[in-house]
């Protein structure tokens, strides 16, 4: 039947306006986040900063040596995320000078510096976080989603299962029994996790439907955005959602005047990478657990996935389909 095409001549007219063409990115094999500090830690003494970078150094070297590159010479880039979303200290030049100097002295080269605020909202006003928020899909209840139920409207929380007790108002005369929490993908036992994604500092009476300006994103949510950015998975019209700007030699006094991502090492390997490693103080363990939960519910644009798969395939770089499998962590011991 299909062979019986009445008009087998090749077509003359062609009109195809693909809304979005996904750009192939220059990619490293591994993006390493070299430590993290809260803004007040950056403000205070130099010693704790120096100590953390010194502890990062051997693990960074190990990462460089073990990067999965499919036989190519490994390309590894490093990055540092500045916490300017929850705390706002107005002395960027001084802090950046100190940070770059101390890391250099510890033998850790920072290639790229990014602002955490940019993971929520870009310098040009574009809502970066929305790219993740609109692509999160809540897990269906077991045998509870047949395509005839509208997606649960995002409450600002993301869980991996069912809470221990129905928290909603019970319907009149509906029976009420206590049930334990339950992780949908559990293996014998549950680790139930419910992560706050944002709160609405809303104006009184304001609703949380689309009034994104009112949202204050949580630390795990922005950290998830940051991971997806590094992995090249967040795009706006096929381009990376956050772009890299070369350092122009001068830091602006106000953080919100600084570019979203600055390339501070001119000879650095590409910022975006197939995989990521985050070397962080141990206190970030719950945050990264939450990041994983968020990323597990993130549905990437299939065209972006395809573009990355193609690039990896061409160079024989193994790339796991599950995004969380592209993430790795090293947690530095606490104390001094």
């Amino acid at each position: 039947m299909f062979s019986a095409v009445p008009d087998a001549a090749p077509s003359v007219f062609h009109e195809r306006n693909q809304g979005t063409t996904v750009q192939n990115l220059g990619l490293s094999h591994l993006s390493v986040a070299v430590g993290h500090f809260y803004m007040d830690e950056l403000e205070n003494g130099e010693e704790p900063i120096r100590t953390q970078f010194e502890r990062v150094k051997p693990w960074l070297d190990a990462a460089k040596a073990s990067a999965i590159s499919g036989g190519e010479r490994p390309r590894v880039s490093t990055c540092f995320l500045v916490d300017d979303y929850f705390q706002h200290w107005p002395d960027a030049p001084q802090i950046m000078e100190k940070l770059l100097r101390l890391s250099r002295e510890a033998g850790v080269t920072i290639d790229y510096v990014a602002r955490e605020s940019a993971c929520a909202r870009r310098l040009d006003g574009f809502q970066t976080a929305e790219l993740v928020a609109t692509r999160l899909l809540e897990e269906p209840f077991p045998e509870g989603a047949n395509g005839g139920r509208p997606p649960i409207s995002m409450s600002g929380w993301m869980s991996n299962g069912k809470p221990p007790r129905e928290s909603r108002v019970l319907e009149t005369m509906e029976s009420h029994v206590w049930e334990p929490a339950h992780e949908f993908g559990e293996r014998n036992h549950s680790i139930y996790l419910d992560v706050e994604l944002w709160d609405s500092q809303g104006r009184p009476g304001g609703e949380d439907d689309g009034e994104l300006g009112n949202r204050r994103y949580s630390c795990p949510f922005l950290a998830a955005v940051w991971q997806l950015i590094r992995l090249g998975l967040l795009r706006q019209d096929g381009q990376p959602a956050l772009k890299v700007t070369d350092f122009d030699g001068e830091w602006r006094t106000e953080w919100d005047q600084c570019p979203d991502i600055v390339k501070v090492n001119p000879s650095a390997q590409p910022f975006y990478a197939y995989r990521s490693l985050s070397i962080l103080p141990r206190t970030f363990l719950p945050i990264e657990h939450s990041v994983q939960n968020i990323i597990n519910h993130f549905l990437p644009d299939p065209a972006v996935v395809e573009s990355l798969d193609r690039q990896a395939g061409a160079k024989n770089v193994p790339l796991p389909p599950v995004i969380a499998d592209r993430l790795s962590h090293f947690f530095l011991a606490g104390g001094n």
């Binding site: 790219l131 899909l137 644009d301």
Partner: peptide, 28 residues
């Protein structure tokens, strides 16, 4: 969806196609 533009044709009949969106399923 933000960040992805719809595909479209102008001829011979205008047509616009949204990006794919996804729905979780667990059913029979």
């Amino acid at each position: 969806l933000p960040g992805v533009s719809p595909d479209w044709h102008r001829h011979p009949i205008e047509q616009v196609v949204s990006p794919d969106i996804f729905f979780g399923l667990d059913c029979r």
